[in-house]
């Protein structure tokens, strides 16, 4: 099993619903976020292009955050989801320094927090909160090892990219372009 997400940049409108929904679903303290929106504008008026991306932890296959963690608080579970156990985390910040995407944040309670792929929902067979709320249906989630999952299908059909592939982390979030 290999959980992954695809983000359709051709449909995302940058509304940030995924950010708000993650906040209310996961008790993310205000002022912090597990996901965020990036807007990329290129060209000169009136020849302009724009890409909008909803970003979060890439649940990297080759996760430097996990490697760098001195306590094992950062770890990978079944399906490739990268998690942090707050009770094992000492808040040293090594994982944050190690993540090329700055996908983690220092929780005000001391430990480091990040996207969990909403494992508490996924375990029940539900989609992550951000996926479920997205009004444009531009987020796809599922098992890459299952060729019939939503995410496998779009990744097979569409052109995609991952972020900062040169960092060598093998991200599992695919941006459809």
């Amino acid at each position: 099993m290999r959980y992954a997400m695809a983000v359709d940049t051709k449909k995302c409108v940058g509304c940030s619903d995924c950010v708000v929904a993650c906040q209310t679903e996961n008790n993310v303290p205000l002022g912090y976020a597990r996901d965020w929106i990036v807007e990329n504008v290129a060209g000169t008026y009136p020849k302009v292009e724009m890409e909008i991306r909803s970003e979060r932890c890439n649940h990297c296959e080759n996760a430097p955050c996990v490697r760098c963690c001195p306590t094992g608080a950062s770890h990978i579970v079944e399906g490739g989801i990268v998690l942090v156990t707050p009770e094992e985390c000492i808040g040293c910040g090594a994982c944050m320094e190690a993540c090329p995407y700055d996908a983690r944040y220092p929780h005000p309670d001391g430990f480091v927090d990040k996207c969990t792929f909403c494992i508490h929902r996924v375990e029940k067979g539900e989609d992550p909160a951000c996926v479920e709320v997205c009004p444009t249906h531009c987020l796809y989630f599922g098992d890459l090892d299952d060729p019939n999952s939503d995410v496998s299908k779009v990744v097979a059909e569409r052109k995609w990219k991952v972020l900062a592939p040169e960092a060598g982390t093998k991200p599992q979030i695919f941006y459809l372009i």
Binding site: G14, I37, E39, N40, V41, D102, R104, P106
Partner: peptide
């Protein structure tokens, strides 16, 4: 001109605008 901005979600103390 190239413009890349974080529209929302990431204005996190200790992380943004840079670590």
């Amino acid at each position: 001109m190239k413009e890349e901005l974080i529209v929302s979600g990431r204005n996190i103390p200790g992380v943004d605008p840079h670590l």
